[in-house]
């Protein structure tokens, strides 16, 4: 790790100005991923601008049921907040399925969204990686890729986004509020991360200096239920092999409203629009859910060792939607 300057930002605008002005600057919030990557040499900033205290760490529920989450809210606090825990169990469950108690106490909402892939080649600077070092190659396509992407990948990169939280946010139609030098804008969480294509190094739609200040959750219709399911090797403290977040509203036995997102299958939380389309108006049965999942996963392009993610994601989807349809809120 090389030396770096450290500056504590007083407010978000000051932070943006400081980072935008310095190409080698990075924002520091919880640091659970950034410090890890700095130790690995993947990140080597000249300047850290600490936004941990400049960003809001409050959660506010609006009168319409929408929620504004300050980007510095810690993962564990978000998971416990009634607006999330009771009203949006998918998000609470996703947060609590990730990392460990210690890490959730430290990691922030903004940082969780912007965490980097755990692809072993990305993390090892002695090996090629197009995402880290454009044009150097992607050894994962032929190498160790059991954990990597089946959807939306390219021959340049098969990385997955590791966040559990982001999958739930994508299904909940969350938006990130982004402050940049040109002002403020919102970006749907489901569109925050780019698919790799020919430029895997462009991981998000954010520009250098852009800062996520808040995450907005729209109000949920009263009849909608949500949930999150994750499969992993270890019973806890492990990244997902695959995960599914869903919001479902069933009326008179049919799917009235559905939002579905897959985790650990692509470089971003994968909003399953094809499946959603197939489900709208369909009977809320395991058969419909399976057909919808299959429709989405028809686009999957598994590699040698990660084809299991197709049936796994399908099974998780069927089980989660079935449980939600049956009224089980978890």
């Amino acid at each position: 790790m090389k030396g770096f300057d450290y500056r504590r930002a007083g407010d978000p605008a000051g932070a943006v100005a400081a980072v935008a002005a310095a190409p080698g600057a990075r924002y520091l919030a919880g640091g659970t991923n950034l410090v890890d990557l700095m130790k690995l040499g993947v990140e080597a900033p000249d300047l850290l601008v600490d936004v941990g205290r400049a960003l809001d760490d409050r959660i506010e529920e609006g009168p319409d049921g929408s929620v504004r989450i300050g980007a510095a809210v810690r993962n564990s606090d978000l998971a416990a907040h009634p607006a999330v825990r009771r009203r949006r169990p998918a998000l609470s469950q996703a947060l609590l399925a990730g990392a460990s108690g210690q890490l959730r106490n430290t990691a922030t909402v903004g940082g969780n969204l912007l965490q980097r892939t755990r692809c072993p080649y990305f993390q090892d600077i002695t090996k090629p990686c197009n995402r880290r070092d454009p044009g150097s190659g992607c050894p994962a396509v032929e190498g160790a890729h059991r954990d990597l992407a089946i959807l939306g990948a390219s021959d340049q990169c098969v990385a997955t986004h590791p966040s559990d939280m982001a999958v739930a946010l994508a299904a909940l139609d969350a938006e990130a509020v982004v402050l940049g030098t040109a002002g403020q804008r919102t970006v749907p969480v489901a569109e925050l991360h780019r698919l790799p294509g020919d430029h895997p190094e462009r991981e998000t739609v954010l520009e250098h200096g852009d800062l996520i200040t808040d995450v907005l959750l729209p109000a949920l219709p009263p009849g909608a239920r949500s949930g999150y399911r994750k499969a992993r090797d270890r019973a806890s403290y492990a990244f997902a092999l695959a995960s599914v977040a869903a919001v479902l509203e069933v009326r008179e036995g049919s799917v009235h409203r559905v939002a579905l997102a897959f985790g650990a299958v692509a470089a971003r939380p994968w909003r399953a629009r094809t499946a959603e389309e197939a489900l709208r108006g369909a009977p809320a049965t395991a058969e419909s859910f399976a057909r919808a999942a299959d429709a989405e996963l028809a686009a999957a392009r598994p590699l040698r060792d990660n084809g299991y993610k197709v049936p796994l994601t399908r099974n998780l989807t069927v089980r989660l939607l079935t449980d939600l349809a049956e009224g089980a809120s978890r």
Partner: peptide, 16 residues
């Protein structure tokens, strides 16, 4: 060995 760290080489956790 690809699994070089304790996030990828899974020793049992308390929950296992």
């Amino acid at each position: 060995h690809v699994e070089a760290d304790l996030a990828s080489y899974h020793v049992p956790t308390c929950a296992d």
